[in-house]
């Protein structure tokens, strides 16, 4: 049953009881988690199987299962420390007491059903949630030891150190070149040769150079979706950020473009730490080194991706990654 985890064909994402054999479904990307119905399935599961999920639903504090490898990361191995982090949208608490250590130079994936707070958590790391009225936080996030929240934090500087790529490719309506060097220009860089060298390096880093080198002056809006997303990656890495946040970077792309981005994430991970949110379990399995499973704003299990997908500590994680629950 566990041998097919890394198979691109996912098991059926239904509210099946755990014992029912999984039927296959053709498209990995379209395994729409929105169709999955939360809360209904546990009643069908054996009583007490979802100990932690039950605790979360009844609002009790729980101890997430954090694998020893991650619990014992040294400070030098950790780039970002999310420590007892909580977040409220007005009166609604979206994130409860989350602790995640993001390992330096690795890809960490956040997975979980819709509304589990994974995107919110990601957008907290570069404080993009500040744009929303009534957001309140508690606990702390640090990147390379520097606080993300708190008085006197320079948010602009923080965002310069942390690159981000969004769900839907969002190149600015300007030329490809202007898009890539945007980050440098806002810092006042004017030297043409510097900008040209940086843009070539970033576009090569995003595996886009060969495709666009002859039309850097063309509008970025004319690129295909996959190219636009790689352009957004180039734009995010042009100034060597300390960390890269990817918010479901492939959810608006076709399977081939998705594959290219996934390959790219592998390459990028050699130079930058990546924190990626994904709806797609197969994608998490393919691209990440560590995986955190979140549910209703809490961390459930956090460990090496291989273990999360092949022998997780919790039955709820196992059922979720198998598509039986969530």
């Amino acid at each position: 049953m566990q041998s097919n985890i890394l198979d691109p064909t996912p098991s059926r994402m239904s509210d099946a009881i755990p014992t029912r054999p999984a039927a296959s479904q053709p498209s990995a990307d379209q395994a729409a988690p929105t169709r999955r119905v939360a809360l209904r399935d546990s009643a069908k599961a054996e009583a007490g199987r979802y100990r932690i999920i039950e605790a979360i639903r009844s609002g009790q504090r729980h101890e997430p299962a954090v694998h020893a490898e991650l619990a014992n990361l040294t400070d030098a191995e950790t780039i970002a420390k999310i420590d007892d982090f909580q977040l409220w949208y007005g009166k609604n608490q979206a994130i409860h007491h989350v602790n995640i250590n993001v390992a330096r130079g690795k890809v960490t994936a956040l997975i979980g059903p819709s509304g589990c707070g994974k995107s919110t958590l990601l957008r907290s790391v570069n404080r993009l949630n500040d744009l929303i009225d009534g957001v309140r936080v508690a606990g702390s996030i640090t990147i390379n030891g520097r606080q993300v929240f708190g008085p006197g934090v320079d948010v602009i500087n923080l965002r310069k150190r942390v690159g981000m790529v969004f769900q839907k490719p969002n190149p600015f309506p300007m030329s490809i070149f202007d898009n890539v060097v945007y980050r440098l220009r806002i810092d006042g860089e004017r030297s043409k040769s510097t900008l040209e060298a940086a843009s070539e390096k970033a576009l090569r880093g995003a595996a886009l150079w060969e495709e666009v080198k002859d039309r850097l002056k063309d509008s970025a809006v004319g690129l295909s979706g996959g190219q636009q997303q790689r352009l957004c990656i180039a734009r995010a890495i042009v100034a060597d950020p300390e960390m890269l946040l990817l918010d479901e970077p492939c959810s608006a792309l076709d399977p081939i473009a998705t594959l290219r981005i996934e390959e790219l994430i592998h390459e990028i991970a050699e130079r930058y730490t990546v924190l990626i949110v994904t709806h797609n379990m197969q994608q998490a399995a393919r691209v990440s080194d560590y995986t955190a499973f979140m549910y209703l704003g809490r961390l459930v299990e956090f460990g090496p991706t291989k273990l999360i997908f092949q022998s997780p500590q919790l039955p709820e994680t196992e059922d979720y990654v198998m598509g039986r629950f969530g």
Binding site: F166, F172, P173
Partner: peptide, 25 residues
């Protein structure tokens, strides 16, 4: 909105975002 978010996420200030991305668009 994605233009504004994209620009702010790159570390642009609000006025830079308006002058360099929003108004030109």
């Amino acid at each position: 909105k994605s233009y504004r978010e994209g620009s702010l996420a790159l570390g642009a200030t609000k006025s830079q975002t308006i002058l360099k991305v929003v108004l030109p668009a």
